[in-house]
Amino acid sequence: MPPHLKHALPKAFWVAGLALVFLLLYAPILSAVLFSFSADRFPSLSMSGFSTKWYAQVLTDRAMLEALSNSLTVAGITALIATALGFAAAYADYRFRFFGQKAVLALALLPPTVPLVILGLAMLAFFSRIGIAGTLAAVVAAHVVIAAPFAMAVCRLRLAQLDETLETAAQNLGALPHSALARIVLPHTLPAILAAFLITFAVSFDEYVISWFTGGLNQTIPVAVLTTLQGQVDPTIHVIGTLSFSVTLTLVLIALAVVLRQSGGAMSKEETS
């Protein structure tokens, strides 16, 4: 709001709304962290004591460690492929005018709007037909589909800030296309590529529906949580949650710091100019 103007409702109202939303977003996370250190089996406000026994239990659980290894493998490979594909598509959209460009863009933005249950179902049917259902490769193939649009969006946003004439200017000075790309476009886009890698890693690491449908016996961490959720109250979920929160929150916050710092100029132009 321009400084000389008043808000329609007092500032306190809007700030209270902000506080409420952040409470809703972070209360479940904080409570999971809190109860992961509780000595009690049943989480309640009257905690009898502090304990790390649930951590010990999770970290010695072979099934859980295997799930962790599966999750890291899937997320790592997914992030590599999704980032590469996402960058390529973002660069293509930035650099070239080609037939069907809008169609490609629409196709790339479609996967996040299709319910994961339906994607999981369709992919399970497809992977069974081609005989890779129940493998981690199937999970990766599917995760790339849902993660690549995020990578593309992050890279495309960054490329939008690159003066389009720079690459042609480099060619005009004698640079071949690949060398103009490597010397002009890549250095500029590198932070976004890193952010895309972290975000796609987090998307894959946290995805449970498709992994559950197509992963078969190869459980990932979220699938393990889902299975536990269907059973009895289990305090180890809080431990797994705390560990996953620390991993994904760190990744995502680093990624966001990178992305937001670049686009900071664009977002706040009207006030800082």
Partner: peptide
């Protein structure tokens, strides 16, 4: 192709490479 023409251009936007120093810009070609 563009890169073989030997017709360097001074651009309206100047198109200087922002992540290079002045000397690196001049050395680029």
């Amino acid at each position: 192709p563009v890169w073989e023409r030997e017709t360097p251009m001074v651009w309206q936007s100047l198109a200087l490479f922002p992540f290079m120093t002045v000397r690196e810009n001049v050395e680029f070609g």
